[in-house]
Nucleic acid binder design. Structure first.
Lengths: 170, 170
DNA sequence: TCAATTTGCTTCGAACTCGAAGCACTTTGC
DNA sequence: GCAAAGTGCTTCGAGTTCGAAGCAAATTGA
């Protein structure tokens, strides 16, 4: 499990299965969000996190954590959402640099409008294929992977530069 | 498993774990490809599929199948790769409409250059956290999901449009 | 045979993404 | 105190993405 020069068939199969399911699911979800509510994936994530937050509002930094994309992208999407009247942005009271983002009633309404379709897609594409046992297995295994990913060193100790170009293909 | 109005905690956990691992892995891989070989994810996929193909060349359509992004995106990336001298494009002999894409020696070299790092990242982030048993479980479960996704009806039998016309969108 | 349709790909414009640079506040160190 | 460093966010420019529209070759069918 520590030889890093090639991947055997079992490893490839697991890697590809994960990658493919992730991509297909993401694609389908984004499609649904756009059609049902005119929201992009990132926009939906922002609204969902706000709706989920106890206080009903978050700072930009809080939003950025846990979101995968860049800070500047977040600024852009927040601007779009504000323009659409789904969120408000205001400077924080305790720290003039911070921006506090809050859901508007309209934003909450929009979220409510897309949620049923969102759930339906996830149900149909993913969950309907999983038994409870499968779900538990996925959660346990991938949860473990996620935790290790989050604490992983950012790849610098491994220069790995050489002419040993092996075979093509993954 | 067929109630589509809400997701319980187990379902959410499985869904989020999958989503998160997929995102983190994709991100890390793209980072590595860019640093080690100046390739974007899509570009790498194109090169890898070409290297993998028996004849060493594919039509645009063949490339598009299995790739997640749009046809126009594929055209764009193929143009980039051609400009960089990593592939060639030529009209097909049997069908003037088709474009046949082939790997150049330079393209093959580039692919060989990024592969070790690619494998290293996948090993470190994903595979090192998985036992053989985990791999088998992932492959079996997600393989099943993937197959059902690919044959799933494209969500039209579920109108799910309450009443209002489609809102203007964000 | 030849219009109508289908197929394979590209072009187009608008939207989205990213990292780097910039700005304005806050904290730190002396 | 107050300069220097740090933090939170935005702006900027370049590159990438998408779907729709367009074009030309191939197929269908009357």
């Amino acid at each position: 499990m520590t030889d890093a020069t090639w991947l055997d068939a079992e490893q490839l199969a697991a890697y590809f299965a994960l990658k493919e399911v992730g991509s297909l699911l993401e694609h389908a979800v984004e499609q649904q969000l756009r059609v049902d509510g005119g929201l992009s994936g990132p926009q939906f994530q922002i609204l969902a996190r706000l709706a989920d937050s106890p206080a009903g509002h978050l700072r930009m930094t809080d939003l950025a954590d846990g979101l995968v994309y860049s800070r500047s992208g977040l600024t852009y999407q927040a601007a779009q959402l504000e323009k659409a009247g789904l969120i408000t942005r205001a400077p924080a009271e305790d720290d003039e640099r911070s921006t506090v983002v809050a859901l508007t009633p309209s934003g909450r309404e929009r979220l409510g409008r897309v949620m049923p379709g969102h759930i339906e897609v996830v149900q149909r594409l993913l969950l309907s294929s999983l038994s409870r046992k499968d779900m538990a297995a996925i959660t346990e295994i991938l949860g473990r992977v996620r935790d290790r990913m989050r604490t992983a060193p950012p790849r610098s100790a491994a220069p790995r530069r050489s002419a040993g170009a092996r075979k093509p293909a993954v």
